[in-house]
């Protein structure tokens, strides 16, 4: 089992900002609702084809990280970071349309799940060999550094891919070049079925940071405020030109690898333990305790979220699938670029 905060200092944020907590609970709930529809409704109805990967239990990482971002920052979210896309500017309807393989969607039907990006929004998606985004994030960070406006690049990935060469190269490269990049590792303890004991031999991945010459920190990935605070610390360093930070956010993947995987390889006791740490319940309790929102207000928020998701799905479902002949379009970005043409 992944250790939490073992190797380096853990600083819990104590700053409570009501507006920020409001955003956090909204995005957490919106993400949970949307992903639950995707996994339990649309997929089972046969409306979503292909694999379904969601971030249940890990929503705090995306929300916590993305809410630290400023204009000009860029992010490389992972496939379990639904909230990042929402927070940084994709509409829920567009995201749903992408899940539904619609022609009028961010990838026009070329890509599945959350492999969606937008240069203007500063969102760059993964490719399926996950660690490959880390070097790319370094390149974006190089440009940000050269622009000199104190912007950062956030890159999300899982503990599984840290075993891949890309990750080593990127972390070394970023440290050598002192790049403003925050490596955010969602250690959800299983890479498909492979537990961390078979993935790496250190007690906490946080030690990886110092090994490359950057701070390494490990936080409870179900605590959105902890994530937020840790990313903020990394950002501060990066914005000050002090280079990258490695952050491990420990969670448990509360689903299978994908919707077809019952995750029977995850011990039942482990699931129960982590179920008690559900990030939404944790934040909700805090918000109620601190009387930032009332129970009723939270119920209203939940109703609003459901309506939003209903509307987004209706919007997405109304869009047509792409015509088959479009398969051959848009391979190259040349004059008469197909992507720059308006859709009919």
């Amino acid at each position: 089992m992944a250790g939490t905060g073992s190797s380096t200092k853990v600083v819990r944020t104590t700053k409570i900002d009501a507006a920020l907590l409001g955003k956090m609970i909204y995005y957490l709930k919106l993400t949970r609702e949307a992903e639950s529809r995707i996994e339990n409704v649309l997929y089972r109805q046969g409306k979503i084809v292909g694999g379904v990967y969601v971030g249940r239990g890990q929503e705090a990482i995306g929300v916590g990280a993305a809410l630290t971002m400023r204009a000009g920052d860029v992010t490389f979210p992972c496939h379990r970071d639904f909230s990042v896309f929402l927070i940084r500017g994709f509409t829920l309807a567009d995201m749903m349309a992408n899940w539904l393989a619609r022609g009028d969607s961010p990838t026009r039907g070329r890509e599945n799940t959350l492999h969606i990006g937008n240069v203007d929004l500063g969102i760059f998606p993964i490719i399926s060999p996950l660690g490959a985004t880390l070097p790319v994030a370094c390149g974006a960070a190089m440009v940000l550094k050269r622009r000199g406006k104190g912007n950062v690049a956030l890159v999300h990935f899982g503990e599984g891919t840290t075993s891949l060469g890309h990750v080593h190269e990127a972390m070394n490269f970023a440290a050598v070049q002192k790049l403003p990049v925050i490596f955010i590792c969602n250690n959800n303890q299983f890479a498909y079925s492979t537990p961390v004991e078979k993935q790496y031999a250190v007690e906490s991945l946080a030690v990886r940071g110092p090994a490359y010459g950057m701070p390494g920190e490990s936080v409870d990935g179900t605590d959105v405020l902890a994530v937020f605070g840790a990313v903020e610390r990394g950002n501060a360093r990066a914005r000050a030109g002090k280079g990258p930070t490695f952050l491990e956010c420990v969670t448990l993947r509360m689903t299978g690898h994908s919707a077809h995987d019952a995750a029977e390889y995850v011990p039942e006791k482990m699931k129960q333990t982590w179920a008690k740490k559900d990030p939404i319940q944790r934040l909700e309790k805090l918000i109620l305790d601190k009387k930032i929102l009332s129970r009723k207000q939270i119920e209203e928020l939940e109703g609003k979220v459901r309506e939003e998701v209903d509307a987004a799905i209706a919007d997405a479902e109304a869009r047509p699938l792409p015509p088959g002949k479009e398969a051959i379009e848009g391979v190259y970005c040349d004059t008469e670029c197909w992507w720059s043409k308006k859709r009919l």
Partner: peptide
Amino acid sequence: SESAIVGAAIG
């Protein structure tokens, strides 16, 4: 680091 170099160029 060819992966990092190419990846950085892509970024």
